[in-house]
């Protein structure tokens, strides 16, 4: 039998989505609470201060950045935790034994990662919207950067899950690579506030474009050139998805 296993892909997507919905306190409520705590702290620390060069108050500037950061981290957590748990508990063999092709596996895993990111982002928006001056200016930008960011992080989560042999190895990647990259990509500040050398380095940081572009969808201004940012994000999205697909296809760290 040839052709795509549509039902299999849909089932795997459902499984990966139900997994995070089963522990929603941990996967949805907790990130929302963390973001709210950040906002309370920064609200009182920064007061009515404006972000230099962007003509927007700091609180309004911060909300989309925090939303995007939570979305990126949750997309990564969805795929990476599923993979590492599967490997440690040996349940990944059932996935490998099933007639799910690498493309179908990518579609299912990454769609579930995007869904989790959008649910977390949506919850944050609902909670924070009433307390801010935030407006949705460009829906397409919010969706484009939200979805692309989730795809990138979902793919990196899969790769990290495939690579890691222990929870410790995975948390090393989460804490030493993913967290610093998302924190240092303009969530809390405009890159125009940085010294030139850091601005130049940031030009090669895809997370910066994701957060800046996502924020642009709300505040109608940003630090990066939109065309350059879209190009950069598309290239990184495609590269990370293709890399995850390829590693899955060859059974990297999964099959002896």
């Amino acid at each position: 039998m040839s052709g795509m296993n549509i039902l299999g892909t849909w089932t795997l997507f459902q499984r990966e989505s139900k997994r995070f919905m089963r522990v929603k306190m941990q996967t949805i409520v907790a990130p929302a609470l963390t973001a709210i705590l950040y906002l309370i702290v920064f609200r009182y620390a920064m007061g009515e201060r404006q972000v230099p060069g962007l003509n927007v108050d700091y609180f309004t500037f911060l909300i989309p950045g925090l939303m995007m950061m939570a979305m990126l981290q949750n997309a990564f957590a969805n795929t990476s935790s599923s993979m590492i748990m599967g490997k440690i508990m040996n349940t990944h063999v059932f996935l490998m034994m099933a007639p799910i092709s690498p493309i179908e596996a990518m579609i299912a895993f990454l769609s579930a990662a995007v869904l989790r990111a959008l649910v977390v982002g949506g919850v944050l928006l609902l909670v924070l919207f009433p307390f801010s001056d935030l407006h949705i200016t460009h829906v397409w930008m919010i969706l484009f950067y939200g979805v692309c960011g989730s795809l990138i992080m979902g793919s990196l989560g899969l790769i990290t899950g495939m690579w890691s042999k222990t929870f410790d190895e995975m948390s090393m990647v989460t804490n030493f690579i993913i967290m610093p990259l998302t924190f240092l990509s303009g969530v809390f500040y405009s890159v125009k506030q940085l010294p030139p050398i850091w601005q130049a380095l940031n030009a090669w940081n895809p997370f910066f474009y994701l957060i800046d572009g996502f924020r642009h969808g709300f505040i109608a201004t940003g630090d990066s050139d939109p065309v350059h940012a879209i190009g950069m994000v598309l290239v990184v999205t495609l590269s990370s998805v293709i890399l995850a697909w390829y590693l899955w296809r060859i059974g990297w760290k999964l099959k002896d």
Binding site: L7, G8, L12
Partner: peptide, 10 residues
Amino acid sequence: HFTRGMYGQS
């Protein structure tokens, strides 16, 4: 149910 679905069966 999940296993059956992954094998492409309703």
